[in-house]
Structures are given as structure tokens and as C-alpha cells.
């Protein structure tokens, strides 16, 4: 498949075959991502990091991925802040960055910003998160992690737990996992459950998700426990937040019921969702998951830049 010049705006822009190819390429990147092997495949290429919102992790992981392959990174975020504040449109900023780089990585507070950027740029644009919108590289690294840890995605019981209403990452992940044949359970307090739009989409894709607020009832059957952040800001009443956060906190006690090889994932940063005592258990895969952002982004960069690897 040819990914050259493809924009990575939403995970829905990819077919299942395309995702599988990216995951295969990501696996091939592992030794390079770890620094065990060295490659200059992207020598001479320039990545333009354009971050309108602070997101140190995502920005650094793109930077690390690019550097591992010998590309240079320019961080337009800092230098362009002044002109952005003066009211330059994103459409104009993008055409400036396009002139300075070979691929643009964009993080922006407004939904749809990446699609707009892709419209105006002939160089490929990778969406690193737009507002509450999509974050396709997160979805890809989540899929990659499950694939690597479980030896495949199909047939696994994946329980997604937390704020499913507002967390758009959970929505894209649910859809993508369904395409790959995972069986889904959505666990959240009623007020934070998966929106109807996403549930309908999952059903349309052939899924039949279980929807519950009771983690205790489903933990024993779970193969992958994916936890998303529950944001304090969503709760008008702090006491209500404390209650919900407490109920869904993953600790050793909760994991006693779990299968031995169940894995725990989290997009990080975590607040109170996972007790630190879980880190040393074999279930904890969230740091591995964070690392997986590197090979996945390496695979994407070589793909959209049309570099054979």
C-alpha cells in the first residue's frame, strides 16, 4: 500500500488493511525505537511540530520518533506563538509551516483543525489531537499495544472504563477495536457513559457492546482493561467526583478478581485512576503503551513521507 502524502486526521481514514500494515511496520521499528539498531531512513527530512496547546508527551514522542530515524525537527510552536496570538488564521500558519517542513504534526484546541490543515497543506499532516476531537496516533498505539501484548486483537474482551462520554479517544478506540473483532464492555457511571452516537457506530460495525456501571461484575472476564481519565472539571459537585473516582480506582484489591494475563492500559498521564501499587504487577502495561508511541509514530512518519523501510 502506498501511504505517501496521506494525511492522518482520523482513524476512520484508514481501512483495516491499512491499519494492519501500519502495525506491521511499527513492529519492524521496535529495535530502532529502542536504539538497538540505527537507521538514517529519514535523513534530510524535516518534521514541523506545530502545537497550539501544551502536550509535552505527544510532542516529544514525535520528536524522538523523527530523531531516531535521522530526521530534523523544527518546533514551530514556540516561534510562531506571537503571530498566532496576533490573530493569524490556522490556514495561513499551516502554509507557512508547509514551506519549512516535509511533514506537519499538529495539535490544536479546536475540533476539525487537522482536517482544515490537511486541506491547505500539500505536505502530509498528522493530527496529534484537535480539541475534544480525534487523536489517531493514540488509537494506533493502543491497537499496537493490544496486538503485541495479547498476540492479536480479535476475540479479546476489552473493557473500557472511565469517562466515556467526553473522552473522544475512547470513542475512536471503541470503533477501531470493533473493526478488529474485539468484544467490548463500557464501564462508566451513567452520566459518563458512551454516547449513543458511538454505541450506534459500534453496532453498525458489527459490535454488540455490554454497557454497565459495575466494574466488579466484568473484571473477571476482561482480557484488556483500558482506563481513561475521569476529569474533575466534568463534575459540578466535587463530592460526586470523589465518589466516582473512588469507585473506579484500579488497585490490587480489584485486580485479585482479574485473569492472570489481563493487561491494564491507560493513555497517561494518570491522576488517581490507577493506584501506584499496580505498577509493579504483571498487569501494568501503560508505560509500555507510552513507549509504543515511538515505533508507531516512526512507522507513520516513514509511511507518509514515502520512505521505504
Amino acid at each position: 500500500m502506498n501511504f505517501e502524502n496521506m494525511d492522518v486526521v482520523s482513524i476512520r481514514d484508514f481501512t483495516r488493511d491499512q491499519i494492519e500494515e501500519i502495525l506491521d511496520k511499527s513492529r519492524a521499528m521496535l529495535p530502532y525505537a529502542k536504539g538497538e539498531k540505527v537507521s538514517r531512513a529519514l535523513e534530510g527530512k524535516i518534521l514541523g511540530n506545530l502545537f497550539f496547546e501544551p502536550s509535552t508527551r505527544t510532542r516529544l514522542s514525535f520528536e524522538s520518533a523523527a530523531n531516531r530515524l535521522g530526521a530534523r525537527v523544527i518546533d514551530v510552536s514556540q516561534t510562531s506563538t506571537t503571530s498566532i496570538v496576533k490573530g493569524e488564521t490556522l490556514a495561513d500558519t499551516i502554509r507557512m509551516v508547509e514551506a519549512y517542513s516535509d511533514v506537519i504534526v499538529l495539535r490544536h484546541p479546536h475540533e476539525g483543525a487537522a482536517r482544515l490543515a490537511a486541506h491547505f497543506s500539500k505536505k502530509p499532516v498528522i493530527n496529534a489531537g484537535d480539541g475534544a476531537g480525534s487523536h489517531p496516533t493514540q488509537t494506533l498505539l493502543d491497537l499496537f499495544t493490544i496486538q503485541e501484548e495479547m498476540g492479536g486483537i480479535e476475540g479479546n474482551n476489552v473493557t473500557i472504563l472511565g469517562d466515556l462520554k467526553y473522552g473522544r479517544t475512547a470513542h475512536s478506540l471503541a470503533e477501531a477495536l470493533t473493526v478488529f473483532g474485539a468484544k467490548l464492555t463500557f464501564v462508566a457511571p451513567e452520566t459518563l457513559q458512551m454516547p449513543k452516537d458511538t454505541v450506534d457506530q459500534v453496532k453498525k460495525l458489527g459490535g454488540d457492546p455490554t454497557i454497565t456501571s459495575d466494574i466488579e461484575g466484568v473484571i473477571a472476564d476482561t482480557d484488556v482493561l483500558y482506563i481513561t481519565r475521569i476529569q474533575k472539571e466534568r463534575f459540578p459537585d466535587p463530592a460526586e467526583y470523589q465518589k466516582v473516582a473512588g469507585t473506579y480506582r484500579v488497585d490490587r484489591e480489584m485486580l485479585r478478581e482479574a485473569k492472570k494475563d489481563m493487561i491494564v492500559m491507560h493513555p497517561l498521564p494518570r491522576i488517581d485512576e490507577i493506584a501506584p501499587e499496580v505498577d509493579s504487577t504483571a498487569h501494568a502495561k501503560y508505560f509500555q503503551q507510552a513507549f509504543n508511541g515511538i515505533p508507531v509514530r516512526m512507522a507513520l512518519l516513514t509511511s507518509v513521507l514515502g520512505v521505504e523501510f
Partner: peptide, 15 residues
């Protein structure tokens, strides 16, 4: 118009 106030099309962009 898009009904989402946070949509980029509601932010004075030329689209």
C-alpha cells in the same frame, strides 16, 4: 453552520 461552537469552521478560518 456547524453547531459545535468549538469547531474550526466557527473560528474565522477561510473555509
Amino acid at each position: 453552520h456547524c453547531g459545535n461552537p468549538n469547531c474550526i469552521t466557527n473560528k474565522c478560518e477561510p473555509v
